[in-house]
């Protein structure tokens, strides 16, 4: 899998490249700022782009904007954005922008430490799934709300909901919670019903629906 890495911090960039190459990815290009990222992506047409959100020149959300630009001309390129601190609104926007294509991820930078998980998430993204950092999902779930159906879910179902929001497949959820897939399906159906969501065939759309729900 060919990847372009965008990170203005030299140390961190090295670390990223190290983690990716250790797991078999081919880093075909690196960029140090927003415009450079767009150029490299268009030039190399990688399978995925891994980018820090905060980059020069403005040091605000250059990474995000560059990613959205790339998406307009090359929607097949998967995008994984890394952030210092996860923001609910950004997660929502990202999923909106992803549209039907999927292939979007939003993770904390420190997730690169666990190279195995990080890279497997990246592969999933390349296959079209959406992946959200557990912390942003936990925050969204944990938001205090007035009289909310989520309160009525059992703890187990809330776990399932969290994993759904993070973008896990039913099979993965079953493995994680040591349940049968059938049990997971039942839980999922119940969650849909309870929250009033329409069912979605694939995980990406599911993530979007759940995040939309959690973000209102």
């Amino acid at each position: 899998m060919r990847v372009v890495v965008a990170e203005d911090q030299a140390l961190l960039r090295e670390g990223l490249v190290l983690v990716l190459e250790r797991d078999g990815f081919e880093v075909v290009g690196t960029a140090g700022d927003g415009p450079d990222l767009v150029r490299k992506a268009r030039a190399h047409k990688p399978d995925a782009v891994v980018a820090d959100i905060r980059m020069p020149p403005t040091q605000t959300d250059e990474g995000l904007r560059a990613a959205l630009e790339i998406r307009q001309t090359h929607p097949q390129i998967a995008i994984l954005l890394l952030s210092q601190h996860v923001q609910r609104r950004l997660a929502q926007e990202l999923l909106e922008q992803a549209g039907a294509v999927g292939g979007t991820g939003y993770l904390l930078k420190q997730r690169i430490v666990d190279g195995e998980t990080f890279c497997s998430d990246l592969r999933r993204i390349c296959r079209g799934a959406s992946v959200l950092d557990p912390e942003v999902v936990a925050t969204m779930l944990g938001r205090a709300r007035r009289d909310d159906p989520i309160e009525r879910l059992t703890p187990r179902r809330r776990e399932v909901l969290a994993l759904m929001a993070e973008g896990w497949t039913n099979a993965a959820i079953a493995r994680r919670l040591t349940l049968t897939e059938k049990a997971v399906l039942k839980h999922v159906a119940h969650v849909y019903q309870e929250l009033g969501l329409t069912t979605h065939p694939d995980e990406h759309r599911r993530v979007r629906a759940v995040i939309q729900y959690l973000g209102r």
Binding site: I53, R54, Q59, T60, D61, S83, Q84, H85, Q87, R88, R89, L90, T139, M140, G142, R143, A144
Partner: peptide, 21 residues
């Protein structure tokens, strides 16, 4: 807060209030 520098006051306040019980 990172959101304040990166995305401005509105986003930062959202994040703040998200974490309030």
């Amino acid at each position: 807060p990172a959101a304040l520098t990166e995305r401005g006051l509105a986003a930062a306040l959202e994040d703040l209030l998200d974490r309030v019980p």
